[in-house]
Simulated scan of single mutants.
Amino acid sequence: MELEIRHLRVICAVAESGSLTRAAKSLRLSQPGLTAQLRRIETMLGGALFERVPQGVRPTAFGELVLARARAVLPAVDDLVFGLRAPAQHRTLRIGTVNAPLLAGLVSWLDAAHPDARVTTVTRGASTRLVELVEAAQLELAVVGDCPGFELAARPGVVLRPVVIEPVFAMMAVGHPLAAKPEVTLGDLAAEDWIVPPPDDDRIREYWATVLRDAGLAMRVRHEVEGPVLVDLVLAGLGVSLCQATSRQSPGLAIRPIVGTPLWYRHLLAWHRDGPFAAGGAEVVENARRAHGEASRRNDAYPAWLARGADRPLEGNGP
């Protein structure tokens, strides 16, 4: 394990809140998950960063030293990513995104709707970080996401607007026995090895595990990877995973609905209350929904699921 920027943010969040419970809530982590992560960071750095007190926790002497360095480094990192840009001839609309299928269509509309602006994009692995950047006016707009029961927390100055909620599907190699079924059950999936992304601040993996646990099942995690590597392992037949219903169909990949549609993912837009999208947010949301509708045809499974008129947990939020 190597020290990463996100670890510094965890240390600062714990120090600022003075409580593991409050820090876990702000980071959208479970308290046991945050405690385990903090222990790994302390093991990596070679010393205790916090000590327990009646009111919560406070930094140790070593922790104060690490905090001083972290608080010096983090603003410089943000400036490097967002602040040190060559002067532009046109105003810039900075768009942040997680793994959003609607991004390309939305950016195309923004280019056409704002010909006087230069639209740029950046990606981050967690929606929580993107919302923070919107709040800090380092992004004008962000495409983010969450799951039922694990919704993004409201932040001062940030408007969060739902775009669409879509089901979570299963994916496996076309040669996998489950690929022969038009739909799979959670029980089918629980009997297989899983390939999943590492836990992150969005708590999506925790949501998956919670839904299975409530059904009396568990994920048998064999590989913990993300991005193209995850898809490569699925294509190699080394396990199953979950994906957004709008995931792109790759050769050799089978995407299947889950019986009863027990898992959902919600796309949202975030912008600053005083930013350039404050007045025209409704139009942006409408065009994001249109872009999602276009993306819904990226595989065969989702259009078929939509044609059946399957129930959705949020009425009117379909593409």
Rank of each mutant, 00 (worst) to 15 (best):
L3M: 15
L3P: 14
I11T: 10
A13K: 00
E16K: 05
E16N: 13
E16S: 15
A24Y: 00
A24K: 02
L29Q: 05
L29F: 14
G33H: 12
L34R: 12
Q37P: 01
Q37F: 02
R39V: 14
R40H: 07
E42N: 11
M44P: 14
M44T: 13
L45Y: 00
G46K: 15
G47R: 12
A48K: 13
L49T: 02
V53M: 03
R58C: 04
A61H: 04
G63N: 00
G63A: 01
E64N: 12
V66F: 00
V66G: 01
L67G: 14
A68F: 13
R69I: 03
A72G: 11
P75F: 13
A76R: 12
L80R: 05
V81R: 12
A86Q: 10
Q89D: 12
R94G: 08
G96Q: 11
G96A: 10
G105H: 08
W109P: 04
D111Y: 08
A113V: 08
H114T: 04
P115T: 10
R124M: 15
R124P: 05
T128K: 09
R129V: 15
L130F: 09
A136M: 14
L141E: 02
A142M: 12
G145Q: 07
C147I: 03
G149H: 14
G149L: 09
G149P: 03
G149W: 10
E151T: 07
P156N: 09
G157K: 11
F169P: 01
L178P: 02
P182R: 09
E183T: 05
G187F: 00
A191Q: 10
A191I: 04
A191H: 10
E192Q: 10
D193F: 15
I195E: 00
D201M: 15
I204G: 02
I204E: 04
E206Y: 09
A209F: 05
T210L: 09
L212Y: 13
L212E: 00
G216K: 02
L217G: 14
L217S: 11
M219N: 06
R220I: 08
R222V: 11
H223S: 06
H223G: 04
E224P: 02
V225Q: 02
L235K: 12
L242A: 11
T246G: 09
S247R: 07
I255S: 07
R256I: 08
P257N: 08
L263G: 08
Y265H: 01
R266I: 00
W271D: 04
H272W: 00
F277R: 01
A282D: 13
E283Y: 12
V284D: 14
V285A: 03
A288P: 14
A288I: 06
R289L: 15
A291Y: 13
A295L: 11
R298G: 06
N299H: 01
D300K: 06
D300A: 14
A301T: 03
A304W: 02
R308T: 10
G318W: 01
